[in-house]
Design a protein around this nucleic acid. Structure first.
Length: 524
RNA sequence: GCCCCUGUAGUUUAAUGGAUAGAACGUUGGCUUCCGGAGCCAAGGGUUACAGGUUCGAGUCCUGUCAGGGGCGCCA
């Protein structure tokens, strides 16, 4: 609908001012009292033309092609043009939603295209903590969004199964001089691992831990398609050497002071980066470069996304530089999110696996459950530094908005169950739909039809927090409708129409909850 | 010192440069002859950290100040 209005506006502007370059104007949902949609086109034109927005508006409005959908076009104060859409347009949206069912909101933008979404990727030196949690939910939800737009999605977890960190883990198990990690989990591993060799101890411990991480991610509802191991899948296959050879051939790698460097400054980094240390060991960056080369060159992903915590901000320039060198500048994105700050008794707690002081995802899940957990991690702007007070979270988990949304879904199921007909039997014809004309009914329909465009927005701007916000509005619109409009007690034709609306709402609620990875219970 | 992020109601926070800054929790008041009251309706609560600037219009963009988080390794 938005795009249709934009189209109408463009036409009218062209006719009114043939010589003016088309302004980059917006069409938005308007506040209820102004109508359904609004555009700022006249205000933007005003500067280019040198006339008052009011005059411009008047001229343009005359030229807007009218059709049966558009009920009213009006000028408002500073220079907005507001559109009011006729009721039949809204009423007729319902059958389409019911017909589409679980595919409602789906599009085929990414048809035949493969996207790799890599997230969490915490090294197996300890259980997943709340520090890793946010990226996990964001990544998984983005994956859902991409799938909804037709992409073939690979969810991927990248980890070190060998190397310095793992050696230190081994030392920590042995509790020797080089031990660094502490905590109950280290003590537990020590019971299981019987070896005096730190390398072997580290290897075994990492394997145990990665197994635990798999379980944790599954209990959050995340299913990774690929667990990519740095040692096994890159190093042992000579992929790091290959990548460096490739860079050398393009004169993008050089020797200096006994080390091998990548000319990342050529791609916007502020200094060149070491690939191979003077000891002959590859750096973390060398592995990461080889890894991204693998994503694009060997596995042929059309698009790749890394979801990283803010502590990796400094790595963005070099990896983007490398990917640019590969020639994939526009098909790679790093989504950076800020940390969740843990507050205990009013003070921030710094989490560290080295001190053994951290909040494990598993523990939090026991307190609040998967649905609250996911909703919470999803609810905020990626750039906001969430304050997470564990005590408050426990108190509030029972009042979490997620239940408000689930309750709407449960209510719907209860209504449809009373009918003793399958919800899938609700007719999809337009019959009687003209009876849906109260503000509560139309308001609900207007929410229902927002899902498809919302999905398209998020696949573009990665602002996943729009999903929970939308789901709250949707549930509110339903609860409001439920209070205002009797369904089963209504006169037969009206009851029929309202049932269609209820069924459509059930579909949209379910699809939205699915995108967030939150369950849609039939009873609560 | 340099780079990135943030500062909005008592609390947690939302808002492609747009209209009266939106919600949740907490607070206050009202709603049951009817499909689930985990709901609905309403009230109160804001100098959007501070000071300038840009513009028809700024929570949003620019500059500065203050405060907090993250990063500036031949660590990962």
């Amino acid at each position: 609908m938005k795009s249709q209005i934009k189209e109408l506006m463009s036409e009218a502007i062209k006719k009114t001012f043939p010589d003016i370059e088309m302004p980059d104007f917006g069409v938005e949902y308007a506040d209820k009292k102004f109508g359904d949609f609004s555009t700022n086109a006249a205000m933007i034109l005003a500067k280019a033309i040198g006339e008052e927005p009011g005059e411009i508006t008047e001229k343009i409005i005359k030229r807007i092609k009218r059709n049966e959908i558009i009920e009213k076009v009006e000028f408002a104060k500073p220079g907005f043009i507001n559109f009011k859409i006729a009721l039949p347009y809204w009423q007729k949206q319902i059958p389409g939603i019911i017909n589409a069912g679980k595919n409602y909101g789906k599009s085929d933008l990414g048809k035949d295209l493969k996207v790799n979404i890599e997230f969490i990727s915490a090294n197996p030196t300890g259980p997943l903590t709340i520090g890793n949690a946010r990226g996990g939910v964001i990544g998984d939800t983005m994956a859902n969004i991409f799938a909804k737009t037709g992409w073939q999605v690979t969810r991927e977890y990248y980890f070190n199964d060998a190397g310095g960190q793992i050696d230190i883990l081994g030392h920590s198990i042995l509790k020797d001089n080089e031990a660094q990690y502490r905590g109950d989990y280290i003590d537990e591993l020590r019971q299981k691992i019987k070896t005096d060799d730190y390398k072997e101890a580290g290897r075994q411990a990492a394997q145990e831990i990665i197994g635990g991480i798999k379980e944790t991610t599954e209990s959050v509802g995340i299913k990774f398609d690929v667990w990519f191991a740095e040692g096994k899948d890159l190093r042992e296959k000579g992929k790091i050497d290959e990548a460096i050879k490739w860079l050398r051939a393009k004169d993008l790698a050089y020797d200096k002071e006994g080390a091998v460097w990548f000319r990342s400054t050529k791609f916007g980094d502020d200094k060149d980066r070491v690939l191979i240390k003077s000891t002959g060991e590859p750096t973390y960056f060398a592995s990461d470069a080889a890894y991204h080369r693998n994503k694009f060159e060997e596995r042929k992903f059309d698009f790749a996304i890394d979801v990283w915590g803010a502590d990796h901000y400094g790595d963005i320039a070099r990896i983007k530089g490398f990917v640019k060198a590969l020639g994939h500048e526009n098909t790679f994105e790093v989504i950076l999110h800020q940390f969740v700050r843990i507050i205990v008794e009013g003070k921030e707690v710094r989490m560290s696996k080295r001190t053994g002081q951290f909040v494990a995802v598993d523990d939090l899940l026991k307190e609040v459950g998967k649905d609250v957990y996911r909703f919470f991690m999803l609810n905020y702007d990626l750039n906001s530094h969430i304050n997470f007070d564990l005590k408050l979270a426990k108190e509030r988990s029972e009042k979490n908005p997620v239940f408000y949304i689930q309750y709407a879904h449960a209510r719907i199921n209860s209504i449809l169950a009373k009918l003793k007909t399958q919800s899938s039997n609700v007719k999809t014809t337009t019959k009687n739909l003209e009876l849906l004309d109260s503000p509560a009914e139309i308001g609900l329909i207007k929410q229902l039809i927002k899902l498809p465009e919302l999905v398209l927005e998020i696949v573009d701007d990665y602002q996943v927090q729009k999903l929970p916000a939308y789901s709250i509005e949707l549930a509110r619109a339903f609860h409001n409708f439920y209070e205002e409009c009797p369904i089963l007690q209504a006169e037969e034709n009206l009851k029929n129409a309202r049932l269609k609306l209820v069924r459509a709402t059930q579909i949209v609620l379910k699809n939205t909850l699915d995108l967030m990875g939150v369950s849609a219970p039939e009873r609560m």
